[in-house]
Amino acid sequence: MSTYHSGPQSAVIYQADPAVVQHLHGVRDSLHQSCKPYLNHNVKVQTIDGQMHEGTIAGMDSKHLYLTVTITTEMGRGYYNPYYKPYPGPGYPYPGPVNNNVILPLVLFELLAISLI
């Protein structure tokens, strides 16, 4: 089935250089091979923007490294955990142990360094 466009042709704004695409595929494959043995290990990750994250490698897919991080109230970045309760409020019982871990997906192409801690 073909699609007929009756308006003006859309202009290409950006198209990646085939050599860059091939290089990025190589970077992705290298990251997979490097990180795969370290699933469930504690690591420190630095992004190309200079952000540092500490956590445990929870998994990977073709685009992301999934890092389990523990949230605290002092963290500058806003992670959302609907079950996080820093202390019980008046009239409410203590909710018991709460898991303050969240999964942070990091884009593979934005990672600069990963080191074991």
Rank of each mutant, 00 (worst) to 15 (best):
N101V: 00
T47K: 08
I57F: 00
T68R: 15
V21R: 14
G26A: 07
Y80C: 03
L67D: 15
L67F: 14
T56F: 00
K36V: 08
Y79S: 08
P90R: 12
D29R: 13
Q51P: 01
N101K: 04
T72R: 03
L65E: 03
G26N: 05
G78T: 14
Q22I: 01
P90E: 12
H64A: 06
G50S: 09
G89L: 11
L31T: 04
C35D: 14
Y79T: 01
E74M: 10
Y94A: 15
G26M: 05
N99S: 01
A58V: 00
M75K: 09
G78Q: 14
L65K: 00
G50V: 09
G55H: 06
P82A: 05
Q51G: 07
N40E: 10
Y38P: 03
E54W: 07
M75D: 10
I103R: 08
L39R: 00
L39G: 00
P37C: 13
T47H: 05
I103Q: 10
L24A: 03
M52I: 15
A19V: 03
Y94L: 10
D29V: 07
V43Q: 06
P82R: 02
Y92E: 14
P37S: 04
P86C: 04
M60F: 03
N42Q: 08
G91N: 15
R77P: 00
P97H: 10
H32Y: 01
E74H: 07
S62Y: 11
I48E: 01
D29K: 12
G59V: 06
Y84R: 13
H41L: 04
V69H: 06
E54Q: 14
N81G: 01
K85N: 03
Y94E: 14
Y38G: 02
A19C: 00
S30E: 12
P90H: 12
P93A: 07
T70H: 08
T68P: 01
K44V: 12
Y87V: 13
G96P: 04
T70I: 07
T68K: 15
K36C: 04
E74L: 06
R28V: 05
Y94Q: 14
K44E: 10
G55M: 10
H25P: 00
N40S: 02
L39K: 01
H25N: 11
Y84W: 15
A19P: 02
P86Y: 08
I57H: 00
T70F: 08
Y83W: 13
K63N: 05
G55L: 02
